[in-house]
Amino acid sequence: MNKDIENLKLAIQKKDLGIERYSDQIKAFGDPQINALLEGILHNEIRHKSELEDHLNRLS
């Protein structure tokens, strides 16, 4: 179970990087179509991070 906790922490770090990357790109790009796609992905990343944190809280 400790390994699960380590892996959840790793995945949360990856999600933080994804959230930062897609947020920066949305600010940088001026293309509405591309931004709509990136906003959808960003929304998923934020939701996934929350799910991972819920598991971490449950197992910690």
């Binding site: 179970m1 390994k3 699960d4 892996n7 959840l8 790793l10 995945a11 990856k14 994804g18 799910e51 991972l52 598991h55 449950r58 197992l59």
Partner: peptide
């Protein structure tokens, strides 16, 4: 990411964590 999460799912002990990965 796809590769990583598939790997993490494979080694997960907790069923709900596995499902999330």
């Amino acid at each position: 990411q796809e590769h990583l999460y598939n790997q993490l799912a494979t080694v997960s002990k907790d069923a709900r964590v596995k499902e999330t990965f």
